[in-house]
Computed example of a mutant assay.
Amino acid sequence: MSSGRHLATLAFLTFGAMAVPAHAATIQIVMQNLVISPSEVSAKVGDTIEWVNRDIVAHTATARNGDFDVMLAPKKTGSAVLKKPGTVDYYCRFHPNMKAMLKIAP
């Protein structure tokens, strides 16, 4: 391989790696028996929250600040990528007693 081509490949690999979040995680939260579990989760910007609805009725994961509103059909999953730090309270629009909180670090 010529040194020019080698440098171009090295630059692509280096800059390509920088575009991908280094430690992004997928965090699973379960909705079952009209309860969100766990009800408090710590995460980071770039992480994905995946809600799993194990109930036979629909739920939502609706952020009070408007950051997300995920519809969860019975026995289905839905997700959202966290885009900004802060504390986000969320609930199910169909069952307002189902409440939870995300603490999102930068």
Rank of each mutant, 00 (worst) to 15 (best):
A22W: 04
R5N: 06
T9R: 13
L102H: 01
A22N: 03
Y90A: 00
A80I: 01
E50Y: 00
D55N: 13
D55F: 04
K44A: 05
Q32E: 13
I27C: 01
I49M: 13
P106D: 15
H95F: 15
K99W: 00
G66K: 03
G46T: 06
S3L: 13
T77N: 10
K75L: 15
D55Y: 10
I27K: 03
A8E: 03
L102N: 01
D69A: 15
N97D: 14
Q28E: 13
K75M: 14
V20P: 06
S79C: 03
F15Y: 09
V35W: 04
H95A: 13
I29V: 14
A8T: 04
S2K: 14
K99S: 07
D55M: 07
W51E: 07
S3K: 12
W51H: 05
A25H: 10
E50R: 14
H95K: 09
F15T: 04
G16I: 02
H59N: 01
P85H: 09
T26W: 05
P21M: 10
F68Q: 00
A100D: 03
Q32Y: 08
G4L: 12
A43M: 00
K99V: 15
P74R: 13
M1P: 04
A22Q: 06
A63G: 11
C92G: 05
L34Y: 13
P96L: 08
A43T: 02
K76V: 05
N97R: 08
S42C: 06
K83W: 07
T14Y: 09
N97S: 14
I29G: 06
G86I: 09
T48W: 08
D89S: 10
G86D: 05
N97L: 09
V30T: 15
I36H: 02
